[in-house]
């Protein structure tokens, strides 16, 4: 099957520091890929390169066979098809929840307000926030904001969803409500690329686990295999940091 997203020989440097080195990856339709690794290993940068928020030094990112690179003419078109949810709550603070969800569909995709509102209400209902449609982001909890951010990304009907440590800034109880929404998306066979530090969540949702270290993908394996018998000593050491013994 032709992959939805394909990355070929991607290299990324910040000045002299190599953040990503020769990344090769292809993701099939409906696949859920979880990226793990310690802080600074390049996970977030990889996601940002995929939708052109970062320049890349070398290589290509292909969505449906078309190049997504900063400066390319179809960049905004490609970004429509790549939804992204960030770690910090990035809702538009001057717009209500409903307006946050329908802004881009109306401005970018030129859909009618009526149709956009209809879809937004369905999605908000699905994440349990239909009653908050007229609230402003400041009136919501962190977990609620993240659920709205997911709805906002879904409104564009993207082919691939990128999640960049979306629960890292949340209280433990709120983590659950956000991850449940993402699990629900996996059941709907959405193609997703997820960066997370929640290992039990990764185990539950992933079709494939990528382990990044020093800007390279050093493991690309089945979740069961990765969590029980990682191939590299580095991954084993990484996994041990999540365990506690007295």
């Amino acid at each position: 099957m032709e992959p939805v997203l394909k990355i070929e020989h991607l290299n990324k440097k910040f000045d002299d520091f190599t953040v990503l080195e020769d990344i090769n990856l292809s993701i099939a339709k409906g696949e859920v890929v979880v990226i793990v690794g310690s802080s600074g290993c390049g996970k977030s940068t990889l996601l940002r390169c995929i939708n052109g928020l970062e320049d890349i030094n070398d290589g290509r990112v292909l969505l449906d066979g078309e190049t997504v690179n900063p400066g390319s003419r179809n960049l905004t078109k490609s970004r429509e098809k790549i939804g992204m949810v960030f770690q910090s709550y990035d809702l538009f603070p001057h717009k209500t929840i409903l307006e946050n969800a329908i802004l881009a569909p109306m401005k970018v995709q030129k859909r009618s307000r009526k149709e956009a509102v209809e879809e937004a209400m369905q999605l908000l209902d699905r994440v349990g926030l239909a009653s908050r449609k007229d609230s402003y982001p400041r009136q919501l909890s962190g977990g609620q904001k993240q659920r709205v951010a997911i709805v906002r990304a879904l409104m564009m009907n993207p082919e691939v969803l990128l999640f960049d440590e979306v629960t890292a800034a949340l209280d433990p109880e709120m983590v659950r409500e956000v991850l449940d929404v993402i699990l629900d998306l996996a059941k709907q066979k959405r193609t997703m690329l997820i960066v997370t530090h929640e290992m039990s969540f990764a185990k539950a949702i992933a079709d494939r686990i990528l382990f990044l270290d020093g800007g390279r993908i050093i493991e690309d394996s089945d979740p069961k295999e990765f969590f029980t018998s990682p191939k590299t000593e580095r991954a084993e050491r990484f996994l041990r940091t999540f365990e506690y013994e007295k």
Partner: peptide, 16 residues
């Protein structure tokens, strides 16, 4: 900056 990035990731042009 995150406001800019999230708007761009929704496919908005610089003008929008």
């Amino acid at each position: 900056v995150i406001q800019t990035e999230s708007a761009l990731s929704l496919g908005m042009t610089n003008g929008q």
